[in-house]
């Protein structure tokens, strides 16, 4: 039967089928996200209204206003931004130095160290949590930014080093050699020459690190205690009161909470995808 249909027609049918499949598939990610947005504009009374509607009579920015005028909730955002930024800066500094060493030098401990750095990524956070808790309490860092910045680096650093090593490997060694012939040290070669031209790689590692830190939950839950030190992921949980759930405010805060990552993603899509796939795809 199909043979009776001309080839262009077949292609048109196939294209329509693919688009229909794409539209149906898009409901899986799209509908919950749409529902989150819609709920953030409702009044809390209308959250479970029957029948449910995407836009209700109570449509307003009230939940957003409630979040951004609450010093307590703004503090969650401030904490998250500060911690994520410090983690990103430190990770990049240490990662660039480490990556440079792995890329440009041969030394006896290179392979074992490399193995350790790859292996650390597989150490479960829950395994580290108990010793971290006692170390942080011992160092009197409990409930501080330093506690989070320091511990987050265990899972951001490996990735940064592996990525930076890979990136530096793509740059010709003649670049460093030219600097050294002019009497510059390897340190100068790294910061004056390699780092400026590695900016795409550094941005990619930076946004990925920021996102990991922004999303972290387990350490933030355990290593901070007071409400004013909580980050966004933990802070959202605090909105779930014992008796009343402020669903609309939780949804508004969720939208605001994913905004930094969403914006980073939209601006740096290419880098993000490169970062995401680096672990599994071999070029």
């Amino acid at each position: 039967m199909l043979n009776a249909i001309s080839r262009p027609a077949k292609i048109r049918i196939a294209r329509a089928l693919v688009i229909i499949a794409l539209l149906i598939g898009a409901l899986l990610p799209g509908f919950p996200v749409l529902w989150m947005l819609s709920s953030s504009f409702k009044s809390n009374m209308d959250i479970f209204a029957y029948p449910p509607a995407l836009i209700t009579d109570s449509f307003s920015f009230g939940a957003y206003a409630a979040v951004v005028t609450s010093p307590e909730k703004l503090r969650f955002f401030l904490n998250s931004y500060l911690v994520s930024m410090f983690v990103t800066i430190l990770t990049l500094l240490v990662g660039i130095l480490g990556g440079y060493s792995f890329s440009r030098y041969e030394f006896p401990l290179k392979r074992p160290l490399n193995m350790v750095i790859i292996g650390v990524q597989a150490v479960p956070p829950i395994t580290l949590l108990i010793p971290y808790f006692s170390l942080i309490v011992f160092l009197k860092l409990h409930n501080t930014y330093a506690a989070l910045v320091l511990t987050y680096m265990v899972f951001t650093l490996s990735y940064a080093i592996i990525m930076m090593t890979g990136y530096f490997n793509t740059l010709p060694r003649q670049l460093d050699e030219a600097v050294m012939i002019d009497g510059g040290s390897s340190f100068v070669a790294l910061w004056r020459v390699l780092v400026p031209i590695s900016l795409p790689g550094i941005v990619s590692v930076g946004v990925y690190t920021f996102m990991l830190a922004w999303n972290e939950f387990l350490f933030a839950l355990t290593l901070t205690k007071t409400t004013d030190m909580r980050t966004v992921p933990v802070g959202i949980q605090l909105l779930m009161g014992q008796h009343s759930y402020e669903w609309n405010e939780m949804m508004a805060m969720s939208v605001l909470g994913c905004l930094p990552v969403l914006l980073l993603f939209l601006f740096f899509q290419r880098y993000f995808i490169a970062g995401m796939t680096a672990g599994s795809v071999k070029g």
């Binding site: 990610p29 996200v33 959202i236 939780m250 969720s254 909470g257 994913c258 995401m276």
Partner: peptide, 15 residues
């Protein structure tokens, strides 16, 4: 299709 990845686990849980 990539959207779920933008959300952190605690936001996904609440949603």
């Amino acid at each position: 299709y990539i959207l779920p990845w933008v959300f952190t686990a605690s936001i996904i849980a609440i949603l």
